[in-house]
Design a protein around this nucleic acid. Structure first.
Length: 559
RNA sequence: GGCAGCGUAGCUCAGGGGUUAGAGCAACCGGCUCAUAAUCGGUAGGUCGUUGGUUCGAAUCCAACCGCUGCUACCA
């Protein structure tokens, strides 16, 4: 009997999506699906997983959309937060809690961070000069200022960047600056804000980053390079009305905590909220305060700065909470070579895919092409191709042909195997070593490779059947036929486990077809030999082949 | 402009100082017919972005250049 270990505690923290628009498949492939695969594996392996995220309801993007549509920011949030919940439900993204940054709990946790950092001297008050629009009566974020680019002369350059020459700018560099709200000429006014002393954490961050092992090089190198250049203190408050309040009165009205300072604190507040909902208010500490716990942050590559530098520095300053174990940021999925983007409308929303395809098909198509090391190009035609050639043909068909033959020849009962020959032993051994290999690949967040490992065993199982030809031996040697089908069923049972993190809906189905007791979620990351004589359930094909000639399929992603 | 990642077969991607560079798909040939016309085997296909350097040896390390992507601190 294996000795019992205390389960590992794994915090799966997933980037907070802005509640300002629908998500597209790039978001799913970049963060939510890899996080879910990782979480499902660890749960099945018997570890204590806490997977949290939520809607980021603050920030300029939400207010911009609200302004444009004549709605309140809250109305925008109330539209998109439920939509996100629907994605998770239908795609099987298994959050333990998906909350929002609009809760009382979140505000309290943010205040605690703010006050603690203030008390320890990591947050201080400072004054900056910023453009103020008299007509609108408000300070202007950099991109709300427009003017002539000092570099190329383009007349509609924004205060943060010139779209014509690509140069990054400070708003006071603009010639003839104008407010994009009122068109008035803005004036520079001093404004007080709180700053986080990020500069003070540079050396510690560098030492910490250099000592990380197993991080993706685009994450680690990038972060180290940035820390070596020198980190500047960052304002953590903004001149706006929409956001988490500041817990001290010093600045007067019209100021809020900067959205990005509070969003990542959401990882802590979500864990606390989860614990409260569970009736064990201290349970969150098992992931955050025990140094043995592991914390993984699944985000897109545009978030590396915040998760590998800013957030760790905040945690160092706060003291007592775990630093990230890894930040396996994905690169981007491009659609026909173009970056998927909410604002540019490239890449259809997730809902349009859910209307047309099974969730496991979407999950497979994305996971087989995760942008783990570099940007990855994807088309809907390619997803359909993978569905038809790989998911249906290799895996679904393996299950179907074996279950059908067992039904026909053994009345849907797990056959009694005869003596195992070397071919039988080899494929059975491979199915076991595959489970260990996939586990190791998932733990090191090589999710695409792990899926490939499992699929190659499905192919080996098909080859095994072609070698042993149970449909032929059925006419001459019942025992040999039973052995072949028994072995194949055992291999399918192992593959069902290995593929569960990727294809939870169909693996659950297979678990039922195999007539096993209890939910697959309780079955563990292991596959025992099946019991001869057990009754199999009537099976249907797991995946639908998609007809590309029906006009639905081609190149919708290029939109 | 600066920084980072990437550039490998027709397509999508692995690999990464050491014998003849890999996978899937597409192409071609063959076997099988239990299975969703699905499976399995084989063949063919690459001067590993360009140029130069280090090395006994470079796709791999270095430099320059070209191209793509991202970041560049007030989009997040």
């Amino acid at each position: 009997m294996a000795e019992t270990h205390d389960p590992r505690r794994i915090l799966v923290a997933v980037g907070w999506p802005y509640a300002n628009g629908s998500l597209h498949l790039g978001h799913i492939a970049g963060a939510y699906l890899p996080a879910d695969i990782f979480a499902r594996y660890h749960r099945l392996a018997g570890n204590d997983v806490l997977m949290v995220s939520g809607s980021d309801q603050h920030g300029t993007p939400v207010t911009v959309r609200a302004d444009n549509e004549g709605r309140t920011p809250q109305e925008v949030v109330d539209q998109f937060h439920p939509e996100f919940l629907r994605y998770w439900q239908e795609l099987g993204i298994s959050f333990d809690l998906f909350t929002t940054t609009g809760t009382k709990n979140h505000e309290e946790v943010v205040h605690d961070f703010f006050m603690t950092l203030l008390r320890k001297g990591h947050v201080y008050k400072g004054t900056t000069q910023q453009f103020f629009d008299r007509q609108a009566g408000r300070f202007l974020p950099d991109r709300y200022v427009e003017g002539t680019c000092p570099n190329c002369g383009y007349e509609k350059a924004r205060g943060d960047q010139c779209d014509n020459c690509g140069r990054t700018l400070d708003p006071d560099q603009l010639i003839d600056p104008r407010s994009r709200i009122s068109g008035a000429t803005p004036e520079m006014r001093p404004t007080e804000h709180f700053f986080f002393r990020l500069s003070a954490f540079g050396p510690r961050l560098l030492e910490w980053l250099r000592s990380r092992h197993g991080w993706r090089k685009h994450v680690q190198n990038y972060s180290i390079a940035w820390a070596e250049e020198g980190l500047l203190d960052r304002a953590i408050t903004r001149d706006m009305e929409w956001g988490v309040s500041i817990p001290v009165e010093d600045l007067g009205p019209g100021k809020r905590i900067y959205v990005w300072f509070e969003a990542f604190i959401g990882y802590v507040s979500a864990a606390k909220e989860w614990a409260q909902l569970r009736g064990e208010p201290d349970a969150w500490k098992r992931w955050w305060e025990d140094p043995a716990a592991e914390t993984y942050y699944f985000v897109g590559k545009d978030n590396i700065f915040f998760h590998a530098l800013f957030w760790p520095a905040v945690l160092m300053g706060y003291e007592g909470l775990n630093l990230p174990t890894n930040v396996p940021a994905n690169q981007y999925v491009t659609f026909k070579g173009e970056k998927a983007s909410k604002s540019e409308g490239v890449g259809d929303s997730v809902l349009s895919y859910l209307e047309r395809y099974q969730p496991d098909m979407i999950r497979y198509g994305l996971a087989a092409n995760f942008p783990e090391t570099s940007d990855t190009d994807m088309t809907e035609a390619e997803m359909i191709r993978r569905n038809n050639d790989e998911l249906v043909a290799t895996w679904g068909n393996l299950v179907n042909r074996v279950l059908a033959m067992t039904g026909k020849n053994f009345d849907g009962v797990v056959p009694q195997p005869g003596p195992l020959d070397p071919r039988d032993e080899r494929i059975l051994a491979r199915s076991q070593s595959m489970l260990a290999e996939v586990a190791s690949q998932i733990e090191s967040v090589h999710l695409k490779a792990a899926l490939g490992t499992a699929m190659s065993v499905a192919q080996e199982a098909n080859a095994y059947l072609n070698e042993t030809e149970p449909w032929k031996t059925a006419k001459t040697d019942r025992e040999r036929t039973g052995t072949s089908l028994y072995v194949a069923l055992c291999v399918i049972n192992a593959l069902k486990v290995a593929l569960y993190p990727y294809l939870p809906f169909s693996s659950r189905q297979i678990h039922e077809y195999l007539g096993l007791d209890g939910p697959i979620e309780d079955a563990g990351w292991s596959a025992d030999r099946l019991a001869p004589g057990a009754k199999l359930a009537a099976a249907q094909p797991l995946f639908k082949k998609i007809d590309v000639t029906d006009g639905e399929g081609d190149a919708r992603l290029s939109a």
